[in-house]
Write a protein that binds this DNA or RNA. Structure first.
Length: 353
DNA sequence: AACCCGTGGGT
DNA sequence: TACCCAAGGGT
């Protein structure tokens, strides 16, 4: 028997006993009994899991499915409600594409089943299209995420650095994909990568395919996959303004009646999210959003994918009409609807203001 | 093809 | 502290 066939059989056997129990997953026993996963839940989980950990996704998945149980319900949601529910999860283009995809799917009467057609929908790329097709329909597609790249690089001792190695890793991963149970195979590869074949100090001692791992034989498992050198992260600085209005019934120092916020441009950094007016760090160059006796509260540090940000927080009670943004009543303001950076800014202002 | 796009936990 | 990197996609 080919090594590839043995690896696939061993992985499925291992998965039958050790599959992670995840909220969006139909486990191997239920799957074998004929239970078909809901494509909506598979799709939603896959979008949320893009570059995002299982632990971070779980709560969001529960809230989304409770509020919008079907793709039709999600398609009918308001943009700002979806953005608010997504707030804190990051990569906000996913939320915009999520809605676009839901509306396209609702309009066409349901999710497509083939990888090729799934690929035409917004937010669905090569990984997600293959994953939905394999997991929800058991199509023999090859699913390659970061876990699979690592597992395959080690099994076949691929020393070429990523991302140049990607095409080779995809070919090798395809050589492992079985014709039956492709969905369970894909999830087994990812579970192995997440729990045993981990980036650092992999647990080779309990790996079901350790005897077939070439990197292990060479003693270089923990060193793979190799990656191209990363460029150092630059630092940016900017200013953010937390403007409030005085409450008519209470002393202004106790409780502000309204907070000045703005909707960021739909594309780009934190695109489409709710934010405090700011400048200087995202390509913008603007003054204070209104007149106030602005005072400095200190800095907030936040690390994005490609730069580190130090934002100086200014706070003040607005005098007259603000020049931009929208005043949100304190009673209707939910800090949880802000992206994490702006949540940090709010917490700083709340602590010191 | 290279760059842009969040966040949080682990080491 | 600093760095790694997660069920990637869009442009």
């Amino acid at each position: 028997m080919r090594d590839e066939t043995v690896i696939s059989a061993r992985l499925l056997e291992w998965y039958d006993r050790h599959a992670r129990d995840l909220p969006w997953r139909v486990g191997p026993a239920e799957r074998a009994a004929g239970r078909i996963p809901d494509p909506y839940r598979v799709w939603l989980s896959e979008i949320m899991l893009q570059q995002t950990t299982v632990a971070a996704v779980a709560g969001y998945f529960h809230r989304f499915t409770a509020r919008w149980p079907t793709v039709e319900a999600l398609a009918a949601a308001r943009d700002e409600d979806v953005m608010a529910e997504w707030a804190g999860l990051g990569y906000y283009a996913r939320a915009r594409n999520l809605l676009g995809c839901a509306r396209a799917v609702a309009a066409r009467g349901g999710f497509p089943t083939t990888r090729e057609t799934l690929l035409t929908l917004p937010g669905i790329g090569p990984y997600t299209a293959a994953a939905i097709s394999a997991i929800a329909h058991d199509s023999p597609e090859t699913v390659v995420d970061g876990n699979v790249e690592r597992v395959v690089a080690r099994l076949f001792a691929v020393r070429t650095p990523l991302p140049a190695a990607k095409p080779e890793l995809v070919r090798l991963a395809a050589s492992l994909t079985p014709q039956r149970r492709a969905g369970d195979h894909a999830q087994a590869m990812m579970d192995l990568g997440a729990t045993i074949c981990t980036p650092r100090s992999p647990a080779c001692g309990i790996c079901p395919v350790v005897d077939l791992c070439r990197a292990r034989a060479l003693g270089i498992a923990a060193e793979l996959p190799a990656r191209a050198a990363k460029t150092p992260k630059p630092r940016r600085e900017g200013i953010v303004w937390v403007g409030t209005t005085p409450d008519a019934a209470l002393p202004a120092a106790i409780l502000p009646a309204a907070v000045l916020l703005e909707r960021r441009p739909a594309r780009g950094l934190l695109g489409g999210t709710l934010a405090f007016p700011s400048t200087g760090w995202d390509g913008s160059d603007q003054g204070p959003p209104g007149d106030a006796d602005w005072r400095e509260l200190g800095k907030v540090r936040h690390v994005f994918t490609h730069f580190q940000l130090d934002l100086t927080v200014m706070a003040g009670v607005l005098m007259g009409q603000p020049r931009r943004g929208q005043l949100i009543a304190q009673s209707e303001f939910d800090p949880a609807a802000l992206p994490s950076l702006m949540r940090k800014v709010w917490n700083r202002a709340k602590d010191q203001g």
